[in-house]
Computed example of a mutant assay.
Amino acid sequence: MASLRHEFYESDERLTLSIFDKGANPDEVSVQFEPRKFTYTHGEKSLVLEPLKGQIDPEKSDYTVGKVKVEVRFAKAVIGRWGGLIGDAPDILANSAASPSSSSEPSTRPAAKRKNWDGITENILKSDKEKNPEEDPNVGGDSTLNGFFQKIFADADEDTKRAMMKSYQESGGTTLSTNWDEVGKSKVDVKPPTGSQWKKWG
């Protein structure tokens, strides 16, 4: 069987492999993902990578067949750089006595440790936000700006409440009006801050 030219690039979470198989027929391409092995066949051409340098998640890995090349996306089971496609190092999942090929037990995945990043990020964001309301009007939560608007809303009559709700919702949070005579006539336009651009998501 003829082997195929290939190259790859990677991030911490994913490795993308390009297999240069020009004019490959998607119906004839066969791809097999295993935790430490990858197999590609197309007619007489094939590419087998074993053992992969790190473990992949076969369920989350996928591929697309293009006109010039086939792009394969490996979802890494453990975050980190491989530095190569095949080899025994650095398979973090095989850090127990088990051999790399038998590391299919999900219990060995140190996934729970990875979630500590959420807590670290939260702490950094909290420490960055230690500002007083004079420096940043968004700081302080209910006791300052939000509390001020809540008080206006609580003490307002029905027309004022309707005006506040309508203007805030229709403007995407960029306008807050208490004048129902003005707001009730037409849709409230979005007014982003100077130097900003409004983009609708979703």
Rank of each mutant, 00 (worst) to 15 (best):
K60A: 15
R36Q: 04
F74G: 07
K37W: 02
K69V: 08
N116D: 09
F74W: 11
P106C: 01
N25Y: 01
N95Y: 03
K129D: 12
P100N: 03
I152E: 06
R36D: 08
L49N: 07
K126D: 12
E50W: 13
F149C: 11
K67W: 10
P26A: 00
D27N: 09
Q150D: 10
P106R: 11
I124S: 02
D128L: 13
S101T: 05
K45R: 14
N132S: 03
D88K: 14
T64K: 12
N116I: 07
F148M: 14
G140P: 03
V72F: 03
G66T: 09
P137Q: 03
F149E: 12
G147W: 13
S30K: 15
D155A: 13
G140M: 00
A97G: 13
S102C: 04
L93P: 01
A98I: 01
D118M: 11
D142L: 15
E50G: 05
V48R: 05
E122W: 05
D128S: 00
L125A: 15
Q32C: 05
E28D: 09
Y40P: 02
L47C: 02
E130K: 11
T121Y: 06
Q32M: 01
T144M: 04
I120L: 06
G119E: 11
I56D: 00
V29P: 04
D155S: 12
D27Y: 06
R114I: 10
D57E: 12
E28P: 04
V72E: 04
E44D: 13
L85S: 02
A94S: 14
E59Y: 06
S96R: 08
P100W: 00
A77Y: 07
K67P: 15
Y40A: 02
D142K: 15
D136R: 07
L125W: 13
N146H: 07
A112H: 07
E59R: 07
N116Y: 13
K37Q: 07
I124K: 11
Y40Q: 01
Y40C: 01
T41Q: 06
A24W: 08
